[in-house]
Design a protein around this nucleic acid. Structure first.
Lengths: 162, 162
DNA sequence: GACTCACTACTCGGATACCTTCTGTCCGAGTTACTAAGG
DNA sequence: CCTTAGTAACTCGGACAGAAGGTATCCGAGTAGTGAGTC
C-alpha cells in the first residue's frame, strides 16, 4: 500500500504550473525540483492523457494547465498517475472452497469488500476535497505571498536563457 | 496504490476464527478458502507478530484469536499485513533545487504532504470504524445465521478427521 | 495396573526463488521559430 | 522592404533496461499426543 513517488512530483508540478503564463518544458520543472527529467516526463505524460495538462510541442513548447487550479482536485492527479483502480480488489473468496457460497446468493458485495470500499471512498473523498488552488493558498500561507511569483519569475528567466 | 492480496485472506481468516473453539491450523484455513497454504501461513505469521492471533504449536495446534472480535479492527489487520507506514511519503521536494526553501523555514509539513496525510487519516479512520465483529454480523445478515456455525462445524470435522 | 520414555506426526517459523510492478533512461517523430535568400 | 522556403533547435511521446517489493514455495525447529516397554 505505497503510493507512487511520482504523485508527489506531479502535485508539485501542478502547483508550479499555476504561476506560469507560458508553456513550461519538462526540463525546467525537473531542474526546479532537482529530479530526473526523464522520469518526470513520464508523469507529465500521464497528466496529459488525463486531460489535466495540455502539451504544446515544438520550440517554446511545454505543458500548461488545461483549467483553473480550483477545478483540479488532488484526486484527479492521484488517479492520473496511479490509475483509477480501487485500492482493494475482492477475489470472491466466499465463492471458493468446500463451503463456497453459491453465486446466486452473492447478490451483494461481500462484507469484507464493503468495509474496504468504505475506506477507499473516504480516502478518495478527502483527496477530492482539496484542489490545486487550495495547495497554492497553503503554500502562500506557509512561505509567504512572494514565494510562488518568485518561481514564476525563475521559470520565465529560464525561458529567456534558452 | 494496490493493497496486498493477503489482506483479504487475513480478514476472512479472522472472521472464520471467531467460529472456532480450538486452534485452527493453517492448512485447514487454506483448504476452506482454497488458497495457497504456504502463502497464507505468511499472513498468519504477520497477524501473530502483531498480536492479533496466537499460535499454538505441536499436535492439535494452530491459530486462535487473542481477543474478542469486537476488539479487533480492520485497521489492525491491514497494518499487520501491509505494514504501519503511511501511504504517502514526502521526499521534501521543497528543500531541493535552485529555489529550495531553507530548512529553517520548514517548521510545518509541506502543503502537499498535509493534504495526502488528511486522506490517509480518513482512510485509516474508516478502517478503524469496522471491527471483525461487525464483519461477522454482516456475514450473518447476508448469508443467514447458520452460515458461520456451519463453517465452525466443518473446521471441527476436519480436526476430527486429522 | 501405573509410570516412564522414546517415537511419530503434526504444527509453526523463517529462509529461499519467481514474478509483476514501479523506477529510471534512452532515442525517434513532430512542431515551431529563426535565418537567409530572392523578388 | 516583403515574402518564402529551408534549416536547425527544441519539444513531446512511446519503447527499452534495471531495481524493488509482493507472491509463492520449501524445509528445518519445536511441541503435544501416542504407544510400547518396564517396574
Amino acid at each position: 500500500m505505497k503510493l507512487s513517488g511520482g504523485v508527489e512530483w506531479a502535485l508539485h508540478c501542478c502547483v508550479v504550473l499555476t504561476t506560469a503564463q507560458s508553456p513550461v518544458p519538462v526540463t525546467h520543472l525537473a531542474e526546479l525540483h532537482d529530479v530526473s527529467g526523464s522520469y518526470l516526463a513520464k508523469q507529465l505524460q500521464a497528466l496529459s492523457r488525463a486531460g489535466i495538462v495540455q502539451s504544446v510541442q515544438g520550440h517554446a513548447g511545454g505543458y500548461r494547465l488545461t483549467r483553473p487550479a480550483a477545478q483540479i482536485t488532488v484526486l484527479d492527479v492521484v488517479e492520473a498517475i496511479d490509475g483509477p483502480g480501487s485500492t482493494f480488489q475482492c477475489t470472491e473468496i466466499r465463492q471458493r472452497g468446500p463451503l463456497a457460497t453459491p453465486p446466486e446468493q452473492c447478490t451483494k458485495l461481500c462484507a469484507v469488500h464493503r468495509a474496504m470500499l468504505r475506506a477507499d471512498h473516504a480516502w478518495r473523498a478527502a483527496l477530492r476535497a482539496t484542489t490545486i488552488a487550495d495547495l497554492v493558498a497553503d503554500v502562500e500561507r506557509d512561505s509567504g505571498p512572494q514565494a510562488l511569483p518568485r518561481v514564476g519569475g525563475w521559470l520565465a528567466g529560464q525561458l529567456g536563457q534558452a
